[in-house]
Design a protein around this nucleic acid. Structure first.
Length: 354
DNA sequence: CGTTTTTGACCCGCGC
DNA sequence: GCGCGGGTCAAAAACG
């Protein structure tokens, strides 16, 4: 796949006919990686249609397999996922980039064509698709092997990821029968006290209250991240419109394009007492839930230079100029809700800049 | 003895 | 086409 220079339309709607949205989504892909260590960039065009993750909106293909036991569907799911890989990234967190690479040729503009958008189409369907594909990555300081999020997990694999001395552990949700939700846990390469947990999939069972509270924060994070207008900038820092999700004023949420899936990154390690360290836009209306059942070793701390430790510094972090579609926000919130549990409505925000 | 973890092997997608 | 790397499987080991 030509990654560094091709522009392509990501057609989120199979029945894209109604150009009801005039939103313009300009994405300047400075750098993007499909892996934590990667450095391959991709330019792309985005529709702000709601099928965030799948250009193939064939519901027969997207709606069933994920409900089947991954043990049974493994061979199919692998190829299917790749088939549906479509970038939707808005912000590429520097911490997930290969800091050593300088992919200058990848600095390109991908422009969203509003005429290709149809936000009136089948929101439910597209939301369902999104539920299954959006990833939520949580960065938190923890001495434990993984943070307690209210769900039960069974480890099914472990791998050494390139560029990171710490192994990546793979877990599968065991709270429900054949629950397709998975997560992987890995320590930050630059700061091993930081635990990076990435969730993917849709729970097919009720979640305990603790998981629900987690969901509230992650969902709000995604919502707020998406509601922001992110200017195209490569100024070397998280951009001036980088969105802060105030989980006790310690959460930094970004929507990442590094993954083949849209990925919301919740950074619970950032410094709340030094807001100038980041360039966050406050969201005073947000009601930050707590994590009462978090593992006691899970201690979000006020640490300066955290972003540097994790590689946040450098250029190319903010790559997008995004005007979030409220429906886009809803879709992503729904996705995270499905991953983490229910969301308190008051925590869901969206802003339509048009 | 049932469940969970470990770990080497395997599959698949992607980049070269 | 080949190699690399991520993700998963599944048998064996460990655990409770």
């Amino acid at each position: 796949m030509a990654m560094s220079s091709d522009k392509r339309i990501v057609d989120f709607f199979a029945h894209d006919q109604n150009p009801c949205s005039k939103e313009k989504l300009c994405v300047d892909i400075k750098k993007e990686s499909t892996h934590d260590h990667g450095g391959v960039s991709r330019g792309f065009e985005l529709d702000t249609g709601l099928n965030l993750v799948s250009a193939n909106t064939d519901s027969d293909k997207s709606g069933v397999d994920d409900e089947v036991s991954p043990n049974i569907k493994h061979k199919q799911s692998s190829s299917k996922i790749s088939e549906e890989k479509r970038p939707i990234g808005v912000v590429v967190p520097r911490q997930f980039m290969d800091l050593g690479q300088d992919d200058s040729e990848s600095n390109e503009i991908a422009q969203f064509d509003a005429n290709k958008v149809d936000t009136s189409k089948d929101f439910d369907k597209t939301t369902e698709a999104t539920k299954r594909r959006v990833r939520v990555s949580v960065r938190a300081r923890s001495e434990a092997a993984m943070i307690s999020d209210g769900c039960q997990w069974r480890k099914y694999g472990q791998k050494m990821a390139k560029g990171n001395p710490s192994p990546r552990a793979y877990y599968r949700c065991t709270m429900g029968i054949a629950c397709p939700v998975r997560k992987h846990v890995q320590r930050c390469a630059e700061d091993t006290t930081i635990l990076i947990t990435t969730y993917e999939g849709t729970h097919n069972h009720p979640l305990p209250p603790s998981a629900t509270r987690m969901a509230a924060t992650t969902s709000a994070a995604a919502s707020t991240a998406l509601s922001g207008s992110i200017s195209t900038t490569n100024n070397g820092l998280l951009g001036p419109t980088q969105t802060l999700i105030p989980y006790s004023q310690t959460t930094n949420a970004t929507l990442s394009a590094y993954s083949p899936f849209p990925t919301v990154t919740l950074d619970l390690t950032t410094n709340p007492t030094n807001p100038s360290h980041y360039f966050h836009r406050p969201q005073p209306h947000f009601l930050a839930p707590n994590f009462p059942n978090m593992n006691q070793n899970f201690v979000p701390q006020n640490l300066d230079n955290e972003s540097k430790l994790c590689g946040l510094e450098g250029s190319g972090d903010v790559v997008g100029n995004v005007t979030a579609d409220p429906n886009l926000t809803k879709a992503l919130v729904a996705a995270i809700t499905s991953i983490m549990g229910n969301v308190h409505p008051q925590n869901v925000t969206s802003r339509n800049s048009n």
